[in-house]
């Protein structure tokens, strides 16, 4: 009897903690979505339900253009960062005789722990002086933002890839080698399929990191390369904007759809 009460108490405490925790995480976002349907220019005064701000959002050239720029930079940056992250993951887990290994580990994980503002400042000053010395990059713009985003994303992708590589059985690769498979084939036929889920999640992480970045992009951007966070920040820095509410709701919808599809992909993967 006493045991049952104890267990009920524990269960109650667990549900209570999780409810409070998740409400804290979701309350602000859900409020924002609710108010995106508010037909009033003053964000917090409820007037009536409407899609007015969604219509205005889709007519706002500045936001649409920034959205397009952001998607372009994020997908390119994620692709390059994933390629290099896989290379790093390989060199750190598969080549045991790499000289000065701690140094390479240090090299590849440093960007993880550098505050954005220092990273942004140093890259900007670097681009300015390299422009001074060798004339490249000729001006600040999408290219410089892309380079910066690749630089800080590589480390994150490398973490994901190398943890996957070091946790799966190396013997499969060695067995293939013993059976006379050439190294390239081993990679494409064995290693790549095994680490594919990590490659996908690495790519997605790099994509979101780039899409989300405001500070580094603000430093390294130039004319014609305003990314979405830069435009949104300029809109909400001093006040509220109902269009941004609508934008949040759309982004939330995309993220939820992505999360659900990842969930189902993972589930079918596990079942197999």
């Amino acid at each position: 009897m006493q045991n049952t009460i104890l267990r009920m108490n524990k269960l109650f405490f667990k549900i209570f903690t999780l409810t409070i925790g998740f409400s804290f995480l979701y309350f602000p976002i859900l409020t924002l979505i609710a108010y995106s349907f508010n037909d009033n220019k003053r964000v917090m005064v409820w007037k009536g339900f409407s899609f007015r701000w969604y219509k205005e959002l889709f007519q706002n050239e500045q936001i649409l253009e920034a959205f397009y720029t952001s998607i372009k930079i994020a997908s390119l940056s994620a692709t390059f960062a994933t390629i290099m992250g896989v290379m790093i993951g390989f060199s750190l887990t598969r080549i045991s005789k790499i000289p000065a290994r701690p140094f390479f580990i240090f090299l590849s994980s440093s960007p993880l722990v550098m505050p954005e503002i220092i990273l942004g400042l140093s890259l900007l000053l670097f681009f300015i002086s390299s422009n001074h010395i060798i004339g490249f990059p000729s001006s600040k713009g999408q290219l410089t933002v892309l380079i910066s985003h690749i630089t800080f994303s590589v480390a994150f992708v490398a973490v994901i890839i190398q943890s996957r590589l070091s946790s799966y059985d190396k013997n499969i690769e060695e067995a293939a080698q013993d059976l006379g498979t050439i190294p390239n084939m081993i990679f494409w036929k064995i290693t790549a399929p095994v680490i594919l889920p990590s490659i996908i999640s690495g790519w997605l992480l790099a994509f979101t990191l780039s899409l989300d970045d405001l500070v580094v992009a603000s430093f390294t951007t130039g004319p014609g390369a305003n990314t979405l966070p830069i435009v949104v920040f300029s809109k909400v820095r001093l006040g509220l904007s109902p269009e941004v509410n609508a934008l949040s709701a759309i982004i939330m919808l995309i993220v939820v759809l992505a999360a659900i599809s990842v969930y189902f992909i993972n589930r079918s993967h596990i079942k197999k």
């Binding site: 976002i29 939330m252 993220v255």
Partner: peptide, 21 residues
């Protein structure tokens, strides 16, 4: 998945949400 969704949602917009609240 519920923990990761806010992690993926734009950082800037989550800060903005508190500004609204």
């Amino acid at each position: 998945v519920l923990l990761i969704i806010p992690f993926w949602t734009s950082f800037l917009l989550r800060v903005y949400a508190w500004k609204v609240l």
